[in-house]
Amino acid sequence: MSLVIYIIIMAGVTYLIRMIPFTLFRREIKSRFFKSFLCYIPYAVLSAMTIPAIFYCTGNFYTAAAGTAAAVVLAYFGFPLIVVALAASGTALLTGLIF
């Protein structure tokens, strides 16, 4: 098993997944149903990726839950991405000192 081949497969598959729909699909999509589907999919993907994985990402449920709570509150009030992400991490770090 060669590292170079692993990396070529990884990068090749990932690129094709992005490139084929982006390049070959040139017509405007007319179907209202399909348009709605495409409109919802990014939020649905991110939601499914985040929950429940976020509660396991620090190796400690309590610190992860505290970080999640901080992120949800700040995101609700519309803070920028980086502020929300760093606050989540900082909260997890601080609660890690307690639990």
Binding site: Y43, L46, S47, M49, T50, A53, I54, C57, T58, G59, N60, T63, A64, G67, T68, A71, V72, L74, A75, Y76, G78, F79, P80, L81, I82, V83, V84, A85, L86, A87, A88, S89, G90, A92, L93, G96
Partner: peptide, 17 residues
């Protein structure tokens, strides 16, 4: 460990608003 949550925090910031 605490940095493990960064990516998810960013996802939350994208989803919530």
């Amino acid at each position: 460990d605490a940095m493990g949550i960064l990516l998810y925090g960013m996802f939350i910031a994208i989803i919530i608003p």
